[in-house]
């Protein structure tokens, strides 16, 4: 087959989703997760009579729990493939990466499977978060003195 014809064929069968569509879906789903967080925070503040700061911790734990559970049940992967960054950038992506790595590697044993691979994807977030926070913290102490 000639190269030109082959390229035409490839283009014909390429997935039709565009970058604009992806970006729009990510914007809407990410926004919905943000609104859920705000609703949960206000619910917890009024139900348990606690401060907004404590309620936001509860909210984050709830989101992590839900993302972990849905990943374990198996259908969160499909949501992530559809929403992409809409679910990866919120804290749900952190829990999703840990649970999916845990479930994938548990058959290799509790130590070398689950134990060493649980932070396979989330580890980079913690590593660069801690290093950058330490570096910027030093910087602020030097510049502003505390």
């Amino acid at each position: 087959m000639e190269k030109k014809k082959y390229e035409e064929l490839v283009n014909k069968h390429k997935p039709t989703e565009t970058r604009g569509q992806n970006a729009f879906i990510a914007f809407v789903t990410g926004g919905i997760v943000g609104v859920i967080g705000q609703v949960l925070t206000e619910c917890y503040t009024s139900w348990f009579d606690i401060s907004t700061k404590d309620a936001s911790t509860f909210m984050l734990v709830t989101l992590i729990f839900l993302a972990s559970l849905f990943t374990a049940l198996g259908f969160f992967d499909k949501w992530v493939t559809f929403c992409k960054c809409g679910l990866i950038i919120p804290i749900t992506g952190f829990a999703h990466s840990m649970t999916s790595a845990g479930i994938e590697y548990r058959k290799e044993g509790p130590i070398f499977g689950l134990g060493s691979n649980i932070f396979k994807l989330a580890g980079s977030v913690i590593l660069y978060g801690v290093v950058s926070a330490w570096f910027f913290g030093i910087l602020r102490l030097i510049i502003m003195g505390g």
Partner: peptide, 25 residues
Amino acid sequence: FCGLVCLIGQLILDNTKLSAGHITS
């Protein structure tokens, strides 16, 4: 705000060779 952060992440993911791990970091 939450939508915009995700939108920026998605734009980086689609238009560069960076993976989702790079973007979260």
